[in-house]
Computed example of a mutant assay.
Amino acid sequence: MPRYALKIDYDGTPFAGWQAQADQPSVQGAVEAALARLDPGFAGGARIAAAGRTDAGVHATGQVAHADLEKDWDPFRLSEALNFHLKPAPVAVLAAVPVGDDFHARFSALERRYTFRLIARRAPVTHDRGRVWQVLNPLDAGAMRAGAAHLIGRHDFTTFRSSICQAQSPVKTLDEITIEEIPLPQGAEYRFHLRARSFLHNQVRSIVGTLERVGAGAWAPDRVAEVLEARNRAACGPVCPPQGLYLTGVGYPRDPFAGA
């Protein structure tokens, strides 16, 4: 059976998350329903596998999944057909490419990249409503960068881990956190870019919520090191809402979409 990798873009607002659920809409369910219109295997209940299971309300601009189809497809025609059958769901297949049987969207991945968007201004957001987290007061980007520096590297991230996280270990290596400050009329947008091989459940939202406390002046930057060392969920700052979070990319030993 030919295997195809799919790069997927979606607005997570109307979904209960990526993972298929019996009684709630999911991104996985929408893609599999579109595949079922094209492939006998999916009409019979075949499943796709994804690089990351995003939570309810979380978006993606670079999710990766793979599907084993019974029919050989021209990659362009496959992506066009899927996008036709995905309508009107806010899900789009950016690219479809044939890959070897040894490619697995989740287990072959070397890194995941997330971006969290936060807007600080008094006036309500309009165009980005449902796609950012808004706070009312200005933030100190320099202080947040100083706090974030304590999190880079290999650590026990128990403090930043959801109580329902199913990962076998809280120890993860966070390779990068960068924080952009983008001026806006009467405010600013802060974009938090995080990169790691894998993340714990709610880790990114917990980190951003903690750094927001630093940027607001409620916490000193060094307190981030203290709460990390505490290895206690109760020491974490507030977990920020999901609508500002985006899965922006997945890294593999060889980019399957290069030249697509």
Rank of each mutant, 00 (worst) to 15 (best):
A67W: 15
P242V: 00
E181Q: 15
A30W: 04
F199Q: 10
R3P: 05
D68T: 05
H66Q: 12
F157H: 13
A260G: 01
D128M: 00
P138W: 12
S26D: 05
Y252H: 06
Q134A: 04
A60V: 02
F160M: 08
S198G: 14
L139P: 06
R145H: 13
G187V: 04
Y252G: 00
R106V: 01
C165H: 12
F116M: 02
A92T: 13
D9H: 14
G52Y: 07
W219C: 06
F103P: 12
D72Q: 12
V214R: 15
G12P: 00
E80S: 10
L245D: 04
V132E: 04
W219E: 02
P138S: 11
Y246E: 03
A49N: 08
A260S: 13
L6Y: 15
N232L: 00
D39G: 06
A43V: 10
F42R: 11
R131G: 00
P256N: 13
F107S: 10
L78K: 14
L38C: 14
L118N: 07
P75M: 09
V58T: 07
L78V: 08
D39N: 13
A188G: 07
L78E: 07
A92S: 12
S163R: 11
G209E: 09
I8K: 11
V97R: 11
A92P: 00
E70L: 13
G153Y: 15
G215L: 01
I152V: 15
D23T: 04
A234C: 04
A234F: 04
Q203S: 02
A22Y: 05
R161A: 02
P185S: 10
A141E: 15
R112K: 14
C236D: 05
L136I: 04
A230G: 05
G17R: 07
S198F: 11
H85R: 14
M144Q: 13
V224T: 08
D55K: 05
S79N: 00
R37Y: 08
T61N: 02
Q19K: 12
R233M: 01
Y114I: 05
Q63C: 06
R145Q: 11
A196N: 12
F76M: 04
H104T: 06
V204A: 04
G244A: 03
A20Q: 09
L35K: 14
A149F: 07
R145F: 06
A92C: 11
V250P: 06
P40I: 08
R106Q: 14
L228P: 03
L184P: 08
F15L: 02
E189D: 09
P238Q: 02
W133N: 01
P170S: 10
I48V: 13
S169W: 12
V214H: 12
G209F: 05
P242E: 00
A196C: 10
G251I: 02
A33M: 07
L228S: 10
I119M: 13
H150K: 13
F84G: 02
F42E: 09
I8G: 03
T159V: 04
Q166R: 15
P256G: 01
A218E: 15
